[in-house]
């Protein structure tokens, strides 16, 4: 098993949090994993990107040019990473901010999730990122949804633990949406 994911969006969308969360879940499933926050020039202009590599073997490069999967949370991210996803790869769009019609490629498996609207049904805009990662894991199964939820308590400081149930609920909502939607 070997899976590379790039997650990209704008600072404040919680990209780094869901990157860490997925990586933590993979660690808990005894897999090898690297989590790389994209650093340097690319961090400017409000960009927030990270790369997660999950593997049952030793991981070579933690840096990935053409990932198997990509999570796109903003329009500029689509322009940057859309063309780089491997043919036949998986593209997950936060359609609250990115119009799926802007995707030109026909060789990808694409799922659009209106994460903001789903988060709003839970009463908290800021849970969009959890909706997205829930949908991602449901579709890719790189880890189990249970492990993903269990990993929440590992990446949040203890004084945020009262927020765990809301985050877990958002993961479930995202997964549910993914289960019920058909791929474009």
């Amino acid at each position: 098993m070997y899976h590379e994911i790039i997650m990209s969006g704008v600072g404040g969308q919680g990209i780094m949090v869901i990157g860490s969360l997925l990586a933590q879940a993979a660690f808990m499933e005894n897999l090898n994993v690297t989590y790389t926050p994209i650093y340097g020039v690319e961090k400017r202009g409000g960009h927030a990107d990270c790369t997660v590599v999950i593997s049952s073997e030793e991981i070579g490069s933690p840096i990935v040019d053409s990932p198997q999967s990509c999570i796109i949370m903003s329009r500029p991210s689509l322009g940057k990473y859309g063309p780089r996803v491997k043919p036949g790869g998986f593209l997950l769009l936060n359609s609250s901010f990115v119009d799926p019609l802007e995707v030109r490629r026909k060789d990808l498996d694409i799922l659009s999730v209106p994460a903001l609207e789903i988060a709003q049904t839970l009463g908290n805009d800021r849970l969009s990122n959890m909706v997205i990662i829930g949908a991602f894991v449901e579709k890719t199964r790189v880890v189990s949804l249970d492990t993903l939820a269990a990993a929440l308590s590992q990446i949040f400081e203890e004084h945020y633990h009262h927020l765990l149930p809301a985050n877990a609920a958002a993961i479930s909502k995202g997964a549910e949406y993914a289960r019920n939607s058909f791929h474009q």
Binding site: S20, F27, L31, V33, T34, T36, P37, G40, P62
Partner: peptide, 10 residues
């Protein structure tokens, strides 16, 4: 370097 310092890994 920054990559080795910043990556989280098992």
């Amino acid at each position: 370097d920054a990559v080795l310092g910043q990556i989280q890994e098992t």
